[in-house]
């Protein structure tokens, strides 16, 4: 079920504070965050945000089209290694 409009978009408080600071200071360094569940607000446009994917931070440049999506959508957590290739590990098991 979608989130109630009444509540407005969800952004983690702490992230919002840090973004406020960045906007005021005009800092260009990417902002590291673990808050994948936070929604991208129009205020974020033009910022560099590095979103954690469980292992590393993925650098993101926020564009207008990204508004309304959550930060985690841009930071994939899984790596797909191709099918049907005999890796050393598989060979050793046989």
């Amino acid at each position: 079920m979608a989130r109630s409009i009444k509540k407005g978009p969800y952004v983690e408080e702490k992230l919002l504070q840090r973004i406020g600071v960045i906007i005021r200071s005009g800092d260009k360094r990417p902002l590291k965050t673990w808050s994948r569940r936070s929604m991208v607000l129009p205020e974020f446009i033009g910022l560099n945000i590095a979103v954690h994917n469980g292992k590393t931070f993925i650098n993101l440049y926020i564009t207008e089209n990204m508004v309304g999506h959550r930060l985690g959508e841009f930071s994939p957590t899984r790596t797909f290694r191709k099918h049907g290739v005999a890796t050393d590990k598989v060979v050793a098991l046989k």
């Binding site: 564009t63 089209n65 990204m66 999506h69 985690g72 959508e73 841009f74 994939p76």
Partner: peptide, 11 residues
């Protein structure tokens, strides 16, 4: 649009 912004649904 989804593809161009590189989000999960786009991929």
């Amino acid at each position: 649009r989804l593809i161009s912004i590189g989000c999960y649904r786009g991929s």
